[in-house]
Write a protein that binds this DNA or RNA. Sequence first.
DNA 1: AAATTTGTCTATTTACATTTC
DNA 2: GGAAATGTAAATAGACAAATT
Lengths: 472, 472
Amino acid sequence: MPVNSFEHYPMSWKPERNQLTNPLYVSITKLLEQDIAAGILAPHTKLPPQRELADFLDVNLSTITRAFKICELKGLIYATTGKGTFVSPGANMPNVFTNHESAIDFIEMGVIKPFYQTNSIILNTIQSVLNKPCAERLLEYSNPLGTPFQKQAAQKWLARFQLNTSIDNIMIASGAQNALTITLISLFKPGDKIATDTFTHPNFMNLANLMDIQLVSIAGDECGMLPDALDTICKTNNISGIYLMPNFSNPTNITISLARRKELADVITKHKLILIEDDVYAFLQPQKIAPITGMIPENSVYICSTSKSLCAGLRVAFAAFPDCYRSRIISGIYNINLKTSSFNAEVIAELICSGAAEKIVNKKIDLAKERKDVFLRHFSNHEINADNLCFFQWLPLPKHMDGNFFEKLSKVHGVHVFCSDRFAVGNTKRQTYARIALSSPTDIAELEKGLKIIKSLLENKDISTLKYEFIV
Amino acid sequence: MPVNSFEHYPMSWKPERNQLTNPLYVSITKLLEQDIAAGILAPHTKLPPQRELADFLDVNLSTITRAFKICELKGLIYATTGKGTFVSPGANMPNVFTNHESAIDFIEMGVIKPFYQTNSIILNTIQSVLNKPCAERLLEYSNPLGTPFQKQAAQKWLARFQLNTSIDNIMIASGAQNALTITLISLFKPGDKIATDTFTHPNFMNLANLMDIQLVSIAGDECGMLPDALDTICKTNNISGIYLMPNFSNPTNITISLARRKELADVITKHKLILIEDDVYAFLQPQKIAPITGMIPENSVYICSTSKSLCAGLRVAFAAFPDCYRSRIISGIYNINLKTSSFNAEVIAELICSGAAEKIVNKKIDLAKERKDVFLRHFSNHEINADNLCFFQWLPLPKHMDGNFFEKLSKVHGVHVFCSDRFAVGNTKRQTYARIALSSPTDIAELEKGLKIIKSLLENKDISTLKYEFIV
DNA sequence: AAATTTGTCTATTTACATTTC
DNA sequence: GGAAATGTAAATAGACAAATT
């Protein structure tokens, strides 16, 4: 029996004791999931301390711990010793691609489209692959890890980004998301913890949640993640890995400085973390800062998708891995994909070796430059580097504005954007942002129209006082 | 302290107490893994009872339970209440594709190659897709779940195998292995149990092991899995799913009879299992028995790869799923693949709609018939159905012959085959077999040569007395 | 058929580390 | 800077069920 009456304690979550069935921990997990899914428990809500809840429900402390842990691995809640347990932002947020609508009624600036103007070049390359004498052999099971020609092309492409590696340490995956899946499933196990930026790539977040891998948020500044913060967390938290996007990190648009990369590399080595370096936007980086993987190749998997740089539809990504992970990675590839289509890999390889790839990248850089200039015309007070060609921008929202609210408001006004809640790795409330995909509108006119709408919304002082009810 | 001295007990595994470090369960897990990997603990070895080991190591019973459970989920050991814990067969067996050698020194009858003679037809179809006005759009991110045309083609293809479903219930995956990954990751969680035949598809086994999903072996006869055996296990074992290959099951070559399918469907419904029906060889089945999914669509995912029937290299599989799993499956596709290449899906769709697919299938059926006849000439006492066009056969080995030994022996004599240990889901010792891939030799002459070698090995009475040492 | 062996599962105890005040 | 609050994690205890003898 509970020792005290809790009637006078304002507990944020009061599941009914009589709703519990055996096993208790499963029952508690389900009640919590339901109440979060139903929106009864809003994002950032602080749950009662485990001991208090245990006392209230008259169960053992570790029964609550167990139930909370399951929800935490699913990404529904996040907890810090000493602080408490909180409902994750974005826990209740539907996946965007899942309920995909065609962008007829609104301007797409949420999803990032990587410019499709260059796709006619790809068709020519497919034709030349088809004309190759070896074309028929590309349709077989052989060379599950890629042909020598394909791996050499991959090597050449990676070297372009200062990542030099042997062809025996390269995998060809069916896109970056697939490479991430292979990496996570091969090198990590459920319950493992991976450090990330406080705002990180939502696809990686969702994948980690799906695989019961816990993300731990590490503070950062304008040069990227803070090495000291990482070191501190690692000392106490049994972190197995770290996920970083070194160039134009999605969604914050931060490029990690060379000095910072070196410092982070030291901490990673010190704590024997596995680095997952996702460098999808390397091709947009004019300075070509060396990747972290180059400094610590033995601790790192470097993933370089060609979806943004060359062709989204062919689903080809390259990844470099060290000898020590080879057998596990190869086994992972085999178990998840069996293999990546040789035909698709050959087309990408041909693009790289024929020089068509350079043309595509240059064209995309020009398009990105043009759109950056348009953006700066409308948001002249927004500080961005002159050579920042990123496909998206990260706009701070007015204080106290709920990100989710702004997202819905924009949609009503005809622009699709993503708010920072979608990218937030469990952490207490802070400044909210919106990610604006400059590359996605079909043309400059549409881009300008979208930017004007966003600007007017941000400048309207009355907006932050509006309530959801008005627009939903 | 241990209560008794164990010096006189013959324990099969005696880890040294002083090698244990904290945490104990992790330490015990590692010792067990090492000793299995090193071959110190041979397949089928009975480990000491958990209580005995706990007493011996002076740790708590459930510390052993926890350590054993981790190894069991990895597929290293298997346990039955009342019986004991045993080392899995094939636990120490390297993945075949992983250490791939070119088949120069031997005849390939291990790996199943699905006839490449039809691939020139595919090249023509790729050409016609390339000439389509919509070709450029196939290189975009759009239609992550497939275009309407592709889904209609998939629907048509599935209908060919008597699986009728709405286009909203079809997914396009990057091959069967990828479809299985999506299904497992979306609908199951680590620790879940899935029922399988006693011998099952090794790719599925490996994937389940990788994902910490436990396979539970169910007895069967020549018509397939026994419904009563399934029912009994389900009553007590908290089974979440069942994996079946209804036609020409890999590796046993069993086709589940219609009557048996109905009975199994009843048990599946009764215990609310999720059926994963892998029908990759449906196209070889002349009788076209209705799939189980058709009887219980709400409980089932039906996977139909085109790798064996149409083209291995393009990596396209179709799968049908019910409404109740739609959101989870779509989210899984998005998290694992983002999408399957639209270009590849379009080629397969074009094959199906143009009628080229029928030509390919017919050609493959002719090739399979020819090889079956060759096989029957050499193994006339082996009973197979006249219309069994399966790409492989399942040969019983002489009593007491170690399958692993036979595999190595055959390799030395120039033929690559797979022994039943590779396919065995944890279970006590029994009759051993070899799987002989008839479709893989490059031509009939090579097939005959391979079959002759196998036959002579099986008829040599002295062989079973040989020891590993002679050939390794 | 009853007793024993053996694995399974969940709740409990205990020690500990960090954050907050 | 020390005490209290709070989450983490491993080892332990006990009830239970299947297989064996």
